[in-house]
């Protein structure tokens, strides 16, 4: 009787543990499969042409130069718009309003915005920017991406400023520095690596975003650096090319996907290294 109870418990444990192992193998294996396919198909189409030529009609092989350029421009603009807003808002939450009721409300709303569906952001910008202007534009695309940047930057800025030890602020205040000065010259400096990490994570987040660009920046077959006109972007081109029936377009879509994944992984690893080195020191 006793022996059988022990045996049963041990058996149950063994079953659970093997399930756990199997789940890990399945989960990781699946992701390896995806990355494997991505590397295989992506490298297949990778050549210098991808970075030097424009997108072409199916049949004549082209590259991805204009969507890469468009993605860089719109991502850069979005960071330029979104970062100051995010840092300032995060500053209020960690410095002036640390114990204010507003801060907890803003934090709650911000956390929701952080994981809100990005296609909604696209609809929103369409309503407030594209419809009044009457046409799609790169500027609207950048605005949509900026809306996604802001919550990410707010979150990390607040977290990182809260990590700055208070004696630093007190010492600066004892020297007679005004509060804004303390924040800008002491707190920001102490939290610099963390804030930069937040910006990098935000870039990683938006560089693969497709949904908010579909009906703000639209797409463009040709080279365009006009911010007031539709502009190509890597994700939008991948979307268009992958769903097309042409083999050479599909190949380019895979290559584009590889480029995006590579960029995102690099950014996240750099961001991680930045905070890790900080934690050690």
């Amino acid at each position: 009787m006793r022996a059988s109870l022990y045996a049963r418990r041990r058996r149950r444990n063994a079953v659970a543990m093997s399930l756990s192992l199997a789940a890990t193998a399945i989960g990781l294996g699946w992701l390896v499969l995806i990355l494997g396919a991505l590397l295989w198909e992506g490298f297949n189409g990778l050549s210098l042409k991808v970075f030097t030529e424009m997108t072409r009609p199916p049949g004549s092989d082209g590259g991805l130069l204009n969507p890469i350029f468009g993605s860089l421009i719109m991502t850069g603009l979005a960071v330029l718009i979104g970062t100051p807003v995010g840092i300032l808002a995060g500053t209020y939450m960690a410095e002036y309003g640390r114990y204010a009721r507003t801060t907890s409300v803003v934090r709650f709303i911000n956390d929701i915005l952080l994981s809100a569906p990005s296609i909604i952001v696209g609809l929103f910008i369409y309503e407030v920017a594209v419809a009044p202007m009457g046409h799609f534009s790169a500027l609207a695309g950048a605005l949509a991406l900026a809306v996604i940047v802001v919550p990410v930057v707010i979150r990390t800025t607040e977290d990182m400023l809260l990590l700055v030890p208070n004696p630093l602020r007190e010492a600066a205040a004892a020297l007679g520095m005004p509060r804004a000065y303390i924040i800008r010259h002491v707190a920001y400096r102490a939290a610099k690596a963390g804030i930069v990490t937040g910006v990098l994570l935000a870039i990683a987040r938006i560089s693969g975003e497709t949904a908010p660009l579909l009906f703000t920046a639209l797409n463009n077959q040709f080279w365009s650096s006009n911010l007031n006109a539709p502009m190509a972007s890597l994700p939008a081109v991948i979307f268009q090319f992958a769903l097309s029936p042409y083999a050479d377009w599909q190949k380019l879509a895979w290559t584009g996907a590889l480029i995006i994944t590579f960029a995102v992984l690099t950014l996240s690893i750099v961001a991680r290294a930045l905070t890790a080195s900080r934690r050690q020191s």
């Binding site: 300032l88 709303i109 707010i154």
Partner: peptide, 23 residues
């Protein structure tokens, strides 16, 4: 500077409001 940061923080609330309103 204080008012600027405060305004940006409140901007987050406004953003959510604007999204809902626009939709």
């Amino acid at each position: 500077f204080q008012y600027l940061t405060h305004a940006m923080a409140l901007g987050v609330l406004a953003l959510l409001g604007c999204i809902i309103l626009a939709l």
